[in-house]
Design a binder for these strands. Structure first.
Lengths: 151, 151
DNA sequence: ATGATAATGGAAACCATTTTCACTATAGAG
DNA sequence: CTCTATAGTGAAAATGGTTTCCATTATCAT
């Protein structure tokens, strides 16, 4: 029951193998709290194992997203960012606070109670009114961070 | 005080002119409730006035976004979508309900009270804790629309 | 071992958007 | 009214993140 055991199980459940490339990518995602881009991952992975190419990074990220192991965020400005999904990390349910100037992204977990109240009410109401089956939501706050205000 | 008067005033306030191209683009945005892409706008505008190029569409959209006349949304999947900002249309404050399959986007305005309560609490708390100046927020719900469920 | 299938890397393609550059329209000075 | 500085424009080229193609390699079931 080594380091990759858990991921191996997860992927096998979807009919995929845990290859060296996939494990390396999952390692990068597991060992950061940042929101990393495909290129970020490529840089790190490639430094250790130059045989792993950018194509594989993209392919793997899509696969991991499909299987629900990671989440993809498009914050705008071109590059998508990825992070382990809540079920697959020790992260709590969180949303994002984004600086419009430097594009810094802060995860916040506060206000869960008020959020739950609103989300639940809205979700139930929307499901009824529009007959959607809702399974996800996303909340962003935008503003200027203290560094950008003074800088 | 013709049709473009209001926009003329708005743009002049920022030191810009209301040109034929800009008016055509604003007309498209004013006369739809959809979230339109640069290409959508180009098609419509270009049909009437083939001299207006795609470059101008992009340039104008950026200008209109900077001046707060329109909002840009990146729902993912490549192309940005635009709509008149709340202050510049008859739209109420709304958020988005998105079908993951067909990518249909529904604006909803319900649950404003519960939303306000949550947003206000979160915004105030986040401003204090992270010292951000927050001026905007975005809420998306994701799910499957009734057509995609049965289809 | 072997044959079928999954996974891979590099190069090329893709495609929305941005940049470049030479040209045109316009407002404001004189 | 004319001139001139500047704003606005279009076509074509460039950009850059992501995807596709294709030939090759690794791995699983038999």
């Amino acid at each position: 029951m080594g380091r990759g055991y858990k991921w191996g199980q997860k992927l096998a459940g979807h009919g995929f193998r845990l290859t060296a490339a996939r494990e390396a990518i999952l390692d990068v995602l597991s060992s950061t709290n940042e929101h990393v881009s495909a290129e970020d991952i490529y840089m790190t992975v490639h430094a250790d194992n130059p045989r792993i190419g950018l194509t594989t990074i993209y392919r793997t990220l899509e696969l991991l997203e499909q299987t629900g192991i990671i989440c993809k965020f498009e914050f705008g400005h071109g590059r998508a960012k990825y992070e382990l999904s809540e079920a697959n990390s020790h992260k709590k349910h969180h949303h994002h606070l984004i600086c419009k100037k430097c594009r810094k992204i802060i995860d916040y977990t506060e206000f869960a109670k008020a959020e739950r109240e609103y989300i639940q009410k809205a979700e139930t109401g929307l499901e009824k009114k529009y007959r959607f089956t809702i399974d996800d939501h996303l909340i962003h706050f935008y503003g200027i961070c203290p560094e950008c205000k003074t800088g």
